[in-house]
Nucleic acid binder design. Structure first.
Lengths: 347, 347
DNA sequence: TAGGTGTATTAACGCGCGTTAATTTATATT
DNA sequence: AATATAAATTAACGCGCGTTAATACACCTA
């Protein structure tokens, strides 16, 4: 301990070359060809000293931080119950490690978007950012469109110029609802995954209505409730639905989290799943398969979204000019045991 | 766009003072008292220009990155199914925001600990690090003890000189098992949360045995299985347990994740929970309450662990010398419906 | 041998900021 | 008024590195 910091100068001294040469060698700078034996000397010296470049100095000199940021736009309360986050982070870590860059996690306090985005882009702490789903009314997004920092949206915001990676939420919801329709259900309730300003909620609700309309089923707004990310909100939404005494034989819960809460509320009301009530979730979180009954749901390739977001961002960082991309990934219906053909009376 | 970077010199020029004064004002340096009206001028200028200090330059000059790292030591596969991670990150973001520092997430590839720790401490990208639970045989930990970078362990490693924040895993497991004992169960199986090199698994297994021993129940090793973080592993462990034909009326699943998997396997074998088999989990993940039946479990204050880890780390960053701390947080038994008094025959 | 043509290496500058030591200005003391 | 003391401000250096423009060196050609 208390050992002096080892700089590239130390490496240069030991190798008997200049600091510049060290920099060229360690950064694989091909514009200047260094004799192989010199390169070896440098590498040996660096290894012997256990040299590690100072990240700040490097960032300052090169004007690139070699780091990207994952920007969370929700309350920490909701972050805590975000069952997707581990998959996202796992996927991001995979990609990021591959390219030797760092991952920062930043939290944008609701209502502070403008300041925070400005600070994030201005501080040059990160070269680019990945935004987790945000709300349609996120006023800060325009700041990002103008800022000279690459941004990839994990999610969709209508009329935005930003690059994005997402699933087709409406199509995904249609898959879920169509499954229920095919089983003979006609009175299908819907609990959204979040409040309406969140675009995933808007889109999934739209998909729900489209599927119904396409099947010639009239839409009954009294069968729609709005969740708020966590299972608790699904639980309450379901209670509200049951209390309303409207009839329905199936529920499309627009996230598995919501679905877990809603199913519990149904059980407490004495309903059998799928006997009295069929459930389709959305997301296919790791625990969905182990729900009781195992949850029929829509699989979202979360880690893949993370990976592609990361890759797209890295492309933007290197090829400065590239056309705007909006990647949509496929989802898949996973049929388990929470759905069943409609028969007899319900509720 | 293409607007020139705004530096502290620009702020100084506009305010009509020197760059040094700007630095003193913006950093609230109390050693040099700046006249209030001068301070105001500086603040106004900074606000008008939208000045944001360059993080790298600041870090380089001050030799502190104003950032800490959350270090993950598991395979990304397991990170993806880490139901705790969101709570940890939520808690960390809370604290970190409070102190105006950044949070980095780093992943240590298994087998690369030494290199990675060395690189992490050497690059000065972060001022301190929080390690998520690691294995007893993590050889890299010694590097960290010697490195001149503060470290807080979220978890426990025996005989380590590192600071840590954790729960008392053995005591926690005893609470769980004692609950089952009190209900009259004597043949209690155990599925650990992870393989044995992970200290949480070792400790929880120890607690399980301690509770049994204290109650005068002989320990049957054939009732013990080892999980591996995710629900799938719990599922398989339970199948193995059932296939063994050993009798038991209750299961202590050392994580809720494991419990979800194990319960599903039990159900598939036609067992009723808690009629035929009682389950106690561990962790109280957000979905535990919404399991079917709602899972009796041990509540781990995950966000609080994160917060205290962060706080401890920040203390280490400021007060250079402080005694080694090993904080243990309390856990709490949450009784729900997956446990029941033993009666009649089982299995 | 003088003049070229690469090739390999280096000296020196700047990135933007924190910070010390020195300087100027205001206030109190004799 | 002259001096001592404190308050306010600044000039100048260095953090460690990337990078450009210049230099030294080897090898060919005439």
């Amino acid at each position: 301990m208390a050992e002096r910091r080892i700089t590239s100068q130390d490496v240069a001294d030991l190798a008997g070359v200049s600091r510049t040469t060290v920099s060229f060698v360690l950064n694989n700078d091909t514009r200047f060809s260094i004799r192989p034996e010199t390169q070896q000397k440098v590498h040996d010296a660096a290894a012997k000293l256990g040299y590690v470049p100072n990240a700040s100095a490097r960032a300052l000199a090169s004007n690139q931080a070699k780091a990207i940021g994952l920007i969370m736009t929700r309350d920490t309360h909701y972050i805590s119950s975000d069952v997707f986050l581990p998959q996202l982070i796992g996927g991001l870590l995979d990609s990021v490690k591959l390219f030797g860059i760092s991952l920062l996690i930043e939290w944008v306090e609701p209502g502070q978007q403008l300041q925070t985005y400005h600070k994030l882009t201005g501080s040059k702490h990160i070269d680019g950012m990945i935004l987790t789903i945000s709300r349609d009314d996120d006023t800060g997004l325009k700041v990002l469109e103008d800022a000279d920092i690459p941004v990839v949206l994990m999610g969709t915001v209508p009329n935005s110029q930003l690059n994005s990676v997402d699933i087709d939420n409406a199509a995904s919801a249609r898959k879920a609802v169509n499954h229920l329709l095919k089983l003979g259900h006609r009175q299908i309730a819907c609990i959204t995954d979040a409040q309406l300003p969140y675009s995933s909620a808007t889109q999934r609700l739209r998909g729900y209505k489209q599927a119904l309309a396409a099947a010639g089923v009239s839409i009954d707004e009294s069968l729609v409730r709005f969740g708020d990310f966590d299972a608790e909100s699904g639980y309450k939404a379901m209670q509200s639905l049951l209390k309303s005494k409207h009839e329905f034989s199936a529920v499309f819960a627009a996230s598995d989290n919501i679905s877990f809460g809603a199913m519990e509320a149904a059980r407490e009301a004495g309903l059998d799943i799928p006997g009295d009530l069929s459930f389709v979730g959305h997301d296919d979180i790791p625990l969905a398969r182990f729900a009781n009954p195992p949850l029929t749901t829509i699989r979202v390739p979360a880690a893949e979204i993370a990976r592609q977001s990361c890759q797209l961002l890295l492309e933007l960082l290197t090829d400065k000019v590239s056309p705007k991309q909006n990647i949509l990934l496929e989802t898949e219906l996973i049929v388990r045991n929470s759905t069943k053909e409609k028969e007899g009376t319900n509720r």
